[in-house]
Nucleic acid binder design. Structure first.
Length: 478
RNA sequence: GCCUCCUUAGCUCAGUUGGUUAGAGCGGCGGACUGUUAAUCCGUAGGUCAAAGGUUCAAGUCCUUUAGGAGGCGCCA
């Protein structure tokens, strides 16, 4: 018997007249005669033609939506109009039956909310298969981008002994018996009895470790899971998400912005070049979804058009101070349309302000730089003015902040002062300070939320739909 | 954590100022047809209206609480 061939391979080589073996899942069985077969290798369904008159009726009954089957036959030119070729079945094997009375999915449009509750089965839908193939391609493109530029992929720890990473609430990691916690004499939990001999948490960022490596390897990046125990209930936050954090020695903020912009454009272009069919499916899905929305809430561009626009146009760069000026003089601010009116320098920008800049004023991705020191993290390099830091946030339409980064404070004394001012315990971070004591150098880096990138590229609107099994407050299913 | 909205058949929804026996499409099942493309046609089953309590002669419809879901805000990536 012929060796199994993937459907993508059939598309590429079109082995007409050849004996082939295909295995996959039934997407539709029409007319007791036509099987739409998908094997996950692409969005394309291969049409299988069954000689129903000479096939056991009991076998035909088992060819149902969702069943896993193998088809051995000959690839021939199609007599029908919908496809170029089709597989004339000679022998059909059922690997796994799929009882349609019990299978939760149906060959029809299902809501994303319903599918989210059946996340273990949603890979079977065209939409989610497309999303997760694109997610893979983006992941690969990121590794390729950095590898081609000589970056070292650093595996920063997932369990961290430091509770001062400064990026949010942490998940405690412990093997202590919660019903019988060991106590010290003063009644506190005796963490010296814990697995690591101290209190540990899941990481909220690999940045500090990346900085250590960058001061020797030069150019590094992390790409790993990250955990935040924040009670965030939004369409763009997860408790467990994947983050990419490059760190570059001898780079300043400008180099950092150039790197981030180049990376985003590279990986989006990579998806455009390698995921055309999946992007087409998602573009149609988005168009369909937006039909039910009022005109003014629909996207101005179709999905792939939007992606091409981002690839081809430079991001708008401006300082926080310039942004405040634009916002202060904007129509919505003067007319009191913002929930939070912009009146003074120093306030943190709310998402309504970021959205205005990106979606209304510039209509393109925006890089905001040089924020007030007071609203940013301790490790960001202080500017000469003493008020602002060399920070940058990249804002994307529909997503908001997709990248947050900065040039790091490399001056030991300045860093120490800032840590003291912000009550960061220096004895906890002695190892971080050591990089500034021994051969310190200017360096910069940023964090990219991988799921936010996948959201943007796939045109999905809820971050819980671009990670296989989302974790968020009150939910850790599967 | 805060605010708003939603929960009716397997799925997506309709259900009028509270008024008899709660409807449709899709899906399922049975049959017909057999070059279909969301196949088509005929027939058929399927509901404790999220749960509990209350108002009323009468509640899917009004009120309260609880649970689940969605969206927005905050925190950020």
């Amino acid at each position: 018997m012929a060796q199994r061939i993937k459907i993508t391979e059939i598309l590429r080589t079109e082995p007409l007249g050849e004996d082939i073996l295909v295995k996959g899942w039934v997407k539709a069985f029409r007319n007791n005669q036509f099987i739409a077969l998908n094997d996950g290798s692409s969005a394309f369904n291969l049409q299988v033609v069954v000689d129903h008159e000479n096939t056991d009726p009991a076998l035909l009954k088992r060819i149902t939506f969702g069943a896993a089957i193998g088809v051995h036959g000959t690839l021939v030119e199609s007599q029908g109009k919908g496809q170029k070729f089709e597989l004339k079945a000679a022998e059909i094997t059922i690997y796994g039956d799929c009882n349609p009375e019990e299978f939760p999915l149906q060959p029809k449009k299902q809501t994303l909310e319903f599918l989210r509750e059946h996340a273990h089965l949603r890979f079977r839908t065209n939409t989610f298969a497309a999303v997760f193939r694109i997610r893979h391609v983006l992941s690969y493109a990121i590794h390729k981008f950095f590898n081609d530029r000589g970056f070292v992929n650093l595996h920063s720890p997932i369990i961290t002994g430091s509770d001062a990473e400064g990026a949010g609430e942490m998940f405690r990691v412990t093997t202590l018996d919660l019903d019988k916690l060991p106590r010290t004499e003063d009644g506190a939990i005796d963490t010296s009895k814990d697995f690591f001999g101290k209190s540990t948490n899941l990481t909220v960022s690999g940045q500090l470790e990346a900085e250590l490596a960058a001061t020797a390897l030069g150019e590094v990046y992390t790409f790993g899971p990250t955990f935040r125990a924040e009670n965030s209930n939004t369409t763009r936050h997860l408790a467990e998400f994947w983050m990419i954090e490059p760190e570059v020695a001898f780079a300043d903020l400008n180099d950092n912005m150039n790197l981030a912009e180049a990376m985003l454009q590279y990986v989006i272009k990579y998806a455009l070049d390698h995921c055309a069919e999946d992007l087409r499916i998602l573009e149609e899905r988005l168009l369909e979804e937006e039909k039910s929305k009022p005109q003014d809430q629909r996207s101005e561009m179709a999905l792939t058009e939007k992606l091409r626009f981002v690839v081809q146009n430079e991001f708008q760069r401006l300082t926080y101070t310039e942004a405040i000026d634009i916002l202060k003089n904007s129509n919505p601010n003067k007319k009191g349309k913002f929930q939070y009116t912009i009146d003074a320098w120093g306030a943190d920008l709310q998402s309504e302000h970021e959205r205005y800049l990106v979606e209304k004023h510039f209509k393109k991705p925006v890089i905001l730089t040089d924020y007030p020191a007071a609203i940013k993290a301790f490790y960001m390099r202080l500017n000469e003015d003493g008020n602002t830091v060399r920070a940058m946030d990249i804002l994307f339409p529909g997503i908001g902040e997709i990248v947050g980064g900065s040039q790091r404070e490399e001056r030991y004394e300045v860093l120490l002062q800032k840590m003291q001012a912000m009550h960061i315990p220096e004895e906890e971070l002695y190892w971080y300070l050591d990089t500034r004591r021994f051969g310190s150098c200017p360096h910069a880096g940023f964090g990219l939320g991988f799921e936010r990138l996948v959201l943007f590229v796939t045109g999905m609107t809820n971050i819980r739909d671009v990670i296989p099994f989302p974790r968020y407050p009150g939910s850790a299913e599967f």
